[in-house]
Amino acid sequence: LGPKYVGLWDFKSRTDEELSFRAGDVFHVARKEEQWWWATLLDEAGGAVAQGYVPHNYLAERE
């Protein structure tokens, strides 16, 4: 699936296409579209919880 990303700060969605998340949440990014990335929010087991657009500057690649 490629690298995983972690949320740096809490983010509250403003549209139906955006995905709310908390700092520390883990994502798989499917598409990078300039300022907004289409991402899947993952649970602790790595299963998909939700999908939506997230601001790229709120995520960091997980080491």
Rank of each mutant, 00 (worst) to 15 (best):
A48C: 08
L8T: 02
H28G: 02
E63I: 13
N57C: 14
Y58H: 04
E34Y: 09
L41N: 01
A50Y: 05
S13H: 04
L19I: 10
F27G: 01
S13N: 07
N57L: 06
P3R: 09
E33S: 08
P55M: 05
G2I: 14
Q51R: 05
Y58E: 00
N57I: 06
K12R: 11
L41K: 10
W9V: 08
R22C: 12
E44I: 08
R22G: 05
W9L: 08
L8N: 02
N57K: 08
Y53F: 09
A30K: 11
V29A: 02
K12L: 13
E18R: 05
L41G: 00
H56E: 09
F21Q: 00
W9R: 13
R31F: 13
L59I: 05
E33H: 10
A50S: 08
A48W: 08
P55S: 04
W36A: 06
A50V: 04
D25S: 07
L19N: 02
E18P: 00
H28M: 11
A48D: 08
Y5A: 01
K12E: 14
Q35T: 12
E34T: 11
E34G: 15
Y58L: 07
R31Q: 07
E34R: 10
L19D: 03
G2M: 13
Y58F: 11
W36G: 09
H56T: 07
W38R: 00
E44W: 06
R22L: 10
G52C: 06
N57P: 01
G52L: 03
D16H: 11
L59A: 02
N57F: 09
V6K: 04
E34S: 13
W9S: 07
W38Y: 13
Y5S: 00
R62F: 15
G24W: 04
W9F: 13
H56S: 15
S13L: 03
W37M: 03
G46P: 03
A45H: 14
A39H: 02
A50H: 04
G47H: 15
E18D: 05
D43S: 06
E17C: 14
A50N: 07
A23W: 06
A30G: 13
L19W: 04
D43L: 07
L1W: 13
E61D: 08
V54H: 05
Y58I: 04
D25I: 06
G24F: 04
F27S: 00
H56F: 13
G47V: 14
L1G: 12
A48R: 08
V26I: 13
G46F: 06
L41T: 02
E44P: 10
T40F: 12
A50T: 07
Q35K: 14
F27E: 00
E34V: 10
R14I: 11
